[in-house]
């Protein structure tokens, strides 16, 4: 379980970002955690809540987007989200599909204000 250190990194980065941009508070933090990042979004959420208690991020909401990996058909170029490891192009039925993304582990943006 390395979600604890992931949550710590998020907190550290956001605090740095707030200082750099002179933000007094942040309402929401948006993360992007792909299903193939090796990181469980739920566990990051949990650790974040626990770790934030003693920081200025106490009341911040953490919103985690989990973008599905994309497949691109090598035959017809159709691009589609990969569900449940089925690697068949839904448009032409061919099985030669290139995988893209799904391994995102990023702080996307912050929301401030009301």
């Amino acid at each position: 379980m390395h979600e604890l250190s992931i949550a710590q990194s998020v907190i550290r980065s956001v605090l740095e970002e707030m200082e750099r941009r002179r933000l007094s508070s942040v309402k929401k933090i948006h993360l992007r955690i792909g299903p193939w990042s090796g990181v469980m979004a739920d566990a990051v959420q949990f650790n974040f809540t626990v770790l934030c208690v003693d920081t200025p991020l106490r009341d911040v909401r953490l919103i985690i987007e989990e973008p599905p990996p994309q497949g691109q058909c090598t035959q017809c170029s159709h691009t589609f989200p990969i569900q449940a490891m089925s690697l068949v192009c839904p448009q032409c039925g061919c099985e030669s599909v290139r995988l893209q993304g799904g391994d995102e582990l990023e702080i996307a943006f912050l929301e401030t204000g009301e």
Binding site: I6, S9, V10, R12, S13, V14, E17, R21, L23, K27, L31, L105, E106, I107, A108, F109, L110, E111, T112, G113, E114
Partner: peptide
């Protein structure tokens, strides 16, 4: 008013 501030930073950027 809410404002969105783009960060677009890898969470493990320090490790990277």
């Amino acid at each position: 008013m809410t404002e969105q501030i783009a960060v677009e930073k890898k969470i493990l950027s320090e490790n990277d």
